[in-house]
Design a protein around this nucleic acid. Structure first.
Lengths: 341, 341
DNA sequence: CTAAAGATTTAAATCGGTTCAAATTCATGT
DNA sequence: ACATGAATTTGAACCGATTTAAATCTTTAG
């Protein structure tokens, strides 16, 4: 149906090799044939079949990005960054949503072997029984960039310093005089949640405050998860906090909704989110949050991946970016004088 | 480096054709060889190269989804739906963000010819100088499903009845007694915005109300666009509305933020969004909105695309879904008695 | 005018699968 | 034991590009 290089060769009265030469701007083909054939190509609107090209060249100009769920604003921004630099480099990106499901994630990992994508950026779940698959893939030389560590594996990595981010946010709350502060956690399969919890806890220590199980409540990563957590908390009223650090902005937004429904208000209850993706900045009471440079994370991950694709021997890159506490209204900083200690 | 079908053939002392037979579960190869070779394949963890397969079979098991911006919650939900059914069918999806840029969109269109993706789902911009590219692609038999009409082209299409959706929402506001109602428009390159405006306007007619340019304000599609529109409006105070229909939820959220900053409140000013994707339902004053079944749209688009991929002769499918007005708090329906007319 | 050097072009192999006509093996009935 | 037909396997072509050694064509110098 569509033209092939052989058709063009026939039309031009020349060999396929020559046509290939002009396609790839090979200096060995003369300027005049180049022009002549280029015209014929143009005329017939011939586009070389990249599948055939991929087979011959052993690379597909495709990479895969596997995240939990593009409909989460933070991940969608990462994907935007990834796609940006891929487009610049002439690559396309296959996107996979693991949906927090290990089986799906494993399935996507298979794209490396099956579809021969040139590399993969992946936010691995922390729920695998073992990580030999990752280990094997990496040992087999497949370019892999992670967005979160995997136990016992050294690979290129781009992430943010979750612990420090949570630590700073928590200290901020504490400095503002909040004393009943809780952390609404993320999904158990997220290493980032554990890290943020660690930072949260550390702030308690540093401020010399007691920390107990009451300071943690189980959350999740979606609006609904935050809402549920808040609902439960404000229905039972076992413990009414005056400060809350949430796993991410979506959880914070859901939590705030729940608290509002029960007649409480922000920032009387101070709330801080994490990510700074999505609607937070535009809430009626704008959300204070630990901002991650999501697009930048995506861009860097892609850049690191390309470096690895091009140069298989280079040593491992581990990029850990800083977060930034973006103080808006929901933490009450604009109302309260910080407590010095 | 990695195993090929020839390696397996050699290992099994059999021809490549036979190995291919077991890979494709060809009934002509005997059960015992099938088992024997399957074991060898398993043992060596051989995965056939799908690039080679794609070349031979002339299909890649890839489709492309081109939207404006995955980081918009509505599009990300569509992409989720698309990916769901693709995963079920063993397809992968390449995602492209046109970013409202015609050149980028055209570039992505090229994936059909270049990367030989088996089909494409695309939300075309309305800013092309001409649509011959689409026309040619479609004439050349490339499977194409649109998420918005293109002037003068008949292709498979899945979308929502924007006009009716906006009409219903507007009537709702009007019935609630709101008299100074405005439409915060979407980007000019979005046909959907024009359709929603038409529905908005029609409601005015039906209610026998005057409609003028004051009833439209230029918006956009992001939080920031809604915010800017609101800010401008409430700074100038030329016209303070008591009801607002926004192009989408993001615009509504931004608009509400602007109005809040200026000391106004929702639902004293009633606000309705469009899409029902993202944070709307979890705002302190939950957003009333015209809900689109985004995931379903994605799923249907993918399903239609697969039908077209499999059966090139079938006639065109045009699926127009209904929206649903989800009444929450931001339109004030829970406070106001509807006005009968 | 011719040989050597340099510039271009080409034939054929290759990438790793699928497919189909032809060849081979197997089973059955006599 | 043998002919026959069915079941299975295989060789070779093909998908559409790239690549490289060899062939051919141009220049240039002597």
């Amino acid at each position: 149906m569509s033209m092939t290089i052989a058709d063009i060769a026939r039309l031009a009265g020349v060999s396929r090799a020559t046509v290939s030469g002009v396609l790839n701007n090979n200096p060995t083909v003369s300027a005049k044939t180049k022009k002549r054939i280029a015209e014929i190509i143009e005329q017939h609107n011939f586009r070389p079949n990249e599948v055939a090209r991929a087979l011959a060249l052993q690379h597909t100009a495709l990479i895969a990005l596997v995240i939990k769920d593009v409909s989460n604003p933070f991940y969608s921004k990462i994907s935007l960054g990834v796609e940006q630099v891929c487009a610049e480099q002439g690559y396309s990106v296959i996107i996979g949503n693991s949906q927090q499901d290990v089986a799906r994630e494993i399935d996507y990992l298979g794209l490396l072997e099956r579809k021969r994508v040139d590399g993969m950026i992946i936010l691995p779940l922390q729920a695998h029984e073992d990580y030999s698959l990752f280990k094997n893939l990496q040992k087999a030389g497949y370019p892999l960039v992670l967005l979160a560590e995997i136990p016992g594996i050294k690979t290129d990595l781009v992430r943010v310093d979750d612990e420090k981010g949570a630590y700073n946010a928590t200290r901020h709350l504490l400095k503002l005089g909040r004393r009943n502060v809780v952390f609404v956690s993320g999904p158990e399969t997220a290493l980032a949640s554990q890290r943020r919890l660690a930072g949260f806890q550390k702030a308690f220590e540093v401020e010399g405050m007691d920390f107990s199980a009451r300071n943690i409540v189980a959350g999740g990563w979606r609006y609904q998860d935050g809402y549920n957590a808040g609902k439960k908390m404000f229905e039972q009223l076992l413990f009414v906090p005056d400060g809350v650090l949430c796993y991410n902005d979506s959880v914070a937004i859901g939590f705030i909704r729940a608290l509002t429904e029960k007649g409480f208000r922000v920032p009387e209850i101070a709330v801080i989110g994490f990510d700074d993706a999505g609607a937070g900045a535009y809430l009626p009471t704008a959300l204070t949050t630990v901002a991650q440079p999501a697009i930048q994370i995506g861009r860097l991950a892609a850049l690191v991946l390309f470096r690895r694709i091009k140069n298989r021997t280079k040593k491992i890159e581990k990029i850990i970016l800083d977060t930034e506490l973006v103080v808006r209204e929901s933490c009450g900083a604009h109302l309260t004088v910080p407590v010095e200690n």
